[in-house]
Design a protein around this nucleic acid. Structure first.
Length: 296
DNA sequence: CTGCGGTCCTGAAGGC
DNA sequence: TGCCTTCAGGACCGCA
């Protein structure tokens, strides 16, 4: 499921392939997943791509932005126009299957400007696929009501310097909820979901059920380092494409971070550190994995 | 503030 | 074989 490292990977990939190009067409195959007016998007140039928490923001020359939330199974796949693909040696689209797929719900047609550089002018199609249909694309203006609703309440970005021990400490001290739920609260820390919360707590040696405000200063310090390390690892491996996950990069390639899971979806298997069986419990309705010996 | 259950949705897995 | 039930999960909503 796209969390911070996955969305950041998507962002970096699309920056290379579609920034500077123009949206020349949109096909909306499932209306509920595209909220806004087509006219605000058609004919606009893509000027920038950013990420805030788990949300992707595509800025347009029209002054509007496309906000995209992938939720559990959303994907963006970029397929350059046939013919030019061979020239670039582009990887296989959509893990080998045909697009549009049954799960394709929105298609953007994108053309590049005249340019001496092949990759800069190459047009193609950007497919928004979403098996579970929980994701969404919203057209919003800078600082408008929708934009504020979606982005305004997000918490601190964990990979910027403002995410200090003091900041994390104040976040944790304000809640008696289990620390894992606080890590996953988007209004506290933006971008951490179930996978990275589980892996982070293993890395820090802290039980997911511990009341947030009861962590010691030493534990808070370790937790901050663990959050940063685990998210950066996720990013290094291009995100995680686990067995039950739909995440792929816009090139159609899988991420590799699932090969480095130490607790997530490893119930019953030995802890990589001490060999004790990894346990699974439910916390806030989510599968929660931990080593009962390494995590205190 | 906190937790709980329901909602959206589909494919996989399990039961018989 | 085939039908039926159960379940996972990000974010949100109503309720206790």
């Amino acid at each position: 499921m796209p969390e911070l490292p996955e969305v950041e990977t998507i962002k970096r990939s699309l920056e290379k392939s579609i920034v500077g190009k123009k949206i020349t067409g949109i096909q909306i195959l499932l209306a509920k997943q595209f909220q806004g007016r087509k006219e605000d998007v058609l004919g606009a140039k893509i000027t920038a791509i950013e990420r805030r928490g788990k949300i992707l923001k595509i800025s347009l020359s029209s002054g509007k932005n496309l906000l995209i939330h992938f939720k559990l199974t959303g994907q963006l796949v970029w397929v350059p126009k046939a013919g030019e693909r061979a020239t670039l040696g582009h990887p296989i689209p959509f893990a080998g299957s045909e697009l549009p797929a049954k799960t394709t719900h929105v298609i953007f047609e994108i053309d590049g400007p005249p340019s001496p550089k092949a990759s800069a002018r190459q047009g193609g199609r950007l497919f928004f696929n979403d098996l579970r249909q929980f994701g969404w694309i919203k057209v919003v203006g800078e600082l408008d009501e929708q934009m504020t609703r979606e982005l305004g309440n997000l918490g601190v970005e964990p990979l910027i310097k403002e995410f200090t021990v003091e900041k994390l400490s104040s976040i944790l001290q304000s809640s008696s909820r289990p620390v894992k739920l606080v890590l996953m609260d988007q209004e506290k820390i933006a971008g951490v979901g179930n996978i990275y919360a589980n892996e982070t707590l293993f890395e820090a040696g802290i039980l997911p059920t511990r009341p947030a405000k009861k962590l010691s200063n030493e534990e808070i310090k370790k937790l901050r380092e663990a959050i940063v390390k685990v998210l950066e690892d996720g990013l290094k491996y291009g995100g995680s494409s686990a067995a039950d996950e739909a995440y792929i990069k816009p090139t159609g390639e899988a991420g590799e971070y699932q090969k480095h899971f130490r607790v997530y979806q490893r119930a019953g298997q030995p802890c990589p550190r001490c060999g004790t069986k990894i346990q699974r419990i439910e916390l806030g309705g989510r599968g929660t994995f931990f080593c009962p010996r390494c995590q205190k």
